[in-house]
Each structure stands twice: as C-alpha cells, then as structure tokens.
Design a protein around this nucleic acid. Sequence first.
RNA 1: CGGGGCGUGGCGCAGCCUGGUAGCGCGCUUGUUUUGGGUACAAGAGGCCCCCGGUUCGAGUCCGGGCGCCCCGACCA
Length: 438
Amino acid sequence: MRLSQAFQPTLKEVPAEAQIMSHRLMLRAGLIRQTASGIYTWLPAGLRVLRNIAQIVREEQDGVGAQEVLMPTLQSAELWKRSGRYDAYGPEMLRIQDRQKRELLYGPTNEEVVTDLFGSTVKSYRELPKTLYHIQWKFRDEIRPRFGVMRGREFYMKDAYSFDASYEGAVSSYYRMMLSYLRIFRRLGIKAVPTAADTGPIGGDLSHEFQVLAPTGESEVFYDSRWDEIDWDKEDLDGNRPEDLKKLQDLVSTTYSATDEKHDTAAWEQVPQERQASGRGIEVGHIFYFGTKYTEAMGVEVSGADGAAFHPHMGSYGVGVSRLVGAIIEASHDDNGIIWPESIAPYRAAILNLRSGDDTCDALCERFYQCAPDDILYDDRSERAGVKFNDADLLGHPWQIIIGPRGAKNGMVELKERATGERFELSVDEALKKLGLA
RNA sequence: CGGGGCGUGGCGCAGCCUGGUAGCGCGCUUGUUUUGGGUACAAGAGGCCCCCGGUUCGAGUCCGGGCGCCCCGACCA
C-alpha cells in the first residue's frame, strides 16, 4: 500500500478520552475510531491486525479438529427462554424488538444457538465428539466500557463449543482446546499463561483463563517459569492422541500458575525459587466445561450405544480477538509506538522514502515495494524524514526500509528492526534477502 | 448503578466565576524555504460554542431539562 493513497490517519495529539497506552496508541496510529461508548470502527490497518489474529486462531482451531461455522449476531429470545437464561442474564444483554414486536437479542455468547443447532442435527453417539466454533461480533452492555478495545461493549470473539458422549470425552476435548490455545498465543508472539479459574455452579477443576503478561494487566499472576519455556509448536503433542492429552493434563496440573485471588501460597512454595515468576495479566481467553447444563435445559439428546438417549457433555472456549489487539500492544510497545510481533503486524515492513521526488530514491523504493505491495506500506508522501520516522515507529512495522539520497546513490539502504532498534546498512540484494523478498 | 469531571474549528485546550466583537497551539490549504528523527516564514480556509427551553436589550458565559463522553468503585472475553 502506498501511504499517499492510504486511509491511514495518524494523530500527533491524543484524544482526551484515552487513558491507557494501547488505547492511545491505537487511536494515534489510526487503527480504530470510537463510534459510541465501547463501540469502535476499525480502520484499515487495525482491521488487518484483527484479521491476522483471527486467521491464526482459525488455523489452530482447525488444527485440533474444530470446525468453523458462522452463527448470527441477532438471536431469538425464544432460544434463551428455553435455556432459562433470558431471565437469568442481566441487563448487559442487549434486547431488541423487531417490527412484529418479536423479541430478539444481540448475542453476548452462543451456547443456545449452537446447542439448538447441534440438537436438531446430531442424533447418534457415533457422531461424537464434535467441536464447532465461530468468530463473530458479540455485544455485552458493560456498565462501564473502558480501555478502548480491551473492554468494549461490542467485541470480536472466537467461541468454540464441544459436544461429547461422556465426561471423559469432554475432558479430552477440553485439553485439546487448551493445546490449541497454547499454540495460538505462542504464534501471536505473546506470553500467555493458563490459570485455574472459577467454574461456577458446575464445580471441578475444568476452567482456565489465559492471561497475557503485560505490565498494565488487571490481576497479578504467579507462575512457574516453565510456562515461558515450553514451545508448543515443537512440543510433540497430537490433539487426537488421548495419551498426549493426558500428558498435557499432567503438565498443567503440575506446573503452577494462578491469579492473585486463587493464589495458593503453600503450593507456590513448592515451586523452585529460580522458577518462581510473576507479572500482571490481561485475560484474553477462557475455557470451561459445563457438562449437560444446556443440553438438559434445552432438551437435546442423542442415542447411545445401548439405544438409550443421553444428554451430551459440553464445554465452551472463548478467545477475545479484538481484546487481543489491545492486550498485545500493552505487552509490546515503547515510548515511540507499537512494536508488532511479525505474525500479526498490519504490514511486514514500511519503506521510508526520505526524499520523495528524487529519481534515485524513488526508483529504489519502487524496487522494494514491487516485491510485496500487499505486505509493505510504502511511505511515498512528500513529508519530512522525521515525520516518516515517527509514523513508522508509531505504526510499529517489524521492519523499516530506510531509503535516502545518502545511501541510495551507492546502492545502499538501511534496515531498522523495530523491536530491537537495530540498524543494518546493506546493499539492495542483501536487504532483499534479509527481508525474505529476494 | 453510586461518586466525580467534561462537552468551544479535525485534535489538544483557554474564555464561563464577573453576560457585550469567539481565541491560542497543533493539524489543514497556498507559496517560499528546508530535506536522515514531528523545519521555518508568510498568506489563508475552517466554529447552529452538544441539544431544547428560560432569564435578559443582549447568553459560549446565568437558570432548568435532556443527550453524549471520560474518570474512580462494584461487574466482565
């Protein structure tokens, strides 16, 4: 994309409403604009990030056998009356009427819709297990939206729902999802630690939150530093092998992690001193098993091997995709702006033409730009060098390709790595090679 | 929902107490200048002062009502 053509408004001054860093940076970098309290328009660069995150989530969900569907944002109140939640759910559920005075709601979650879908389709235990997910906008009418996209009212979320014939099967589905989540966060380039969470009325130990470690997190997280060390991509765990899931389960139960409210000092002291780590956490995912709560309430049954009908066991698994954008920025920025992990950056690199209009500079910039016009943001504006440096740092592209008259006449360019600030004086060919464009 | 604050060109703010010509910085436009970390000068454009009502000769300013937004607290992916 050529910046001169792009809808990419950056701001020098921060709008007064933004308090925390990620929110300020998102507004300044032109990723989002607020439309109403807790409701945002995603501008092109922000949307690219959102999509990149969603794509990684999608690939890793597919990778453990979950299947993608797309359920609606508007749901019939009828369904929620069947589950009993229409009355149980508080005022954070947005209720609407259509012209026929039918009651609708803007979905805050999708257990009802998916359970109904499943129940009307699956009739035999032979078809189990099944896990369905979708990535869709949700709405929760938060009492007090804040922190920009981190606690908006409208948010983009991946939610998955598993159906199993038995408790044991459901536990497998649960840990299969956990594996998928650990891989997702790894690929997103962030440290995320699963912490045991309250399971509500169901009980048991089958609920975990995933905390992204960032200084501004809302809760204190204590964890065994082994969580940092395990590379879930390389770890040879197959979500389809029960023994591998058992291995993960053992690992989780023996590797300490907890938020402050569930912190267990006695267990903590068992963790070797050198592995005791702590930090602030932002909750970006939550998984839990809730058994037959909805299948029972909504009368969903399938036939078992013995011919008798039973209620499948369910679990649900959320990832706050839009929240992750904010959380990742909280975890990865400096005074000059955002530092995107390569996997989700809106553009892999920016080309900074330090003298637009100069034939040598222009030609050299074009040469780089044409290698990957979709992945590169080419700053071809007739702005001062300083403006371009500042905007590029603010936008946080992993790489800056700096092309000015000084080096250009000798066929040299400068690469700057945003994360480290490291600069490389390279020939054109070397630079192309280093960026993987050659 | 309880407590607090704010609404004035695109953004950040002053003006309101004590009513009388709507201001500043940034951004924007044009020209000159500058050219490796937000350049300088000059000339411009741009405002139902959130909305409705009231008081007054006269309201951005005072009074009443409404709407919107933000912050602190209890709640949440």
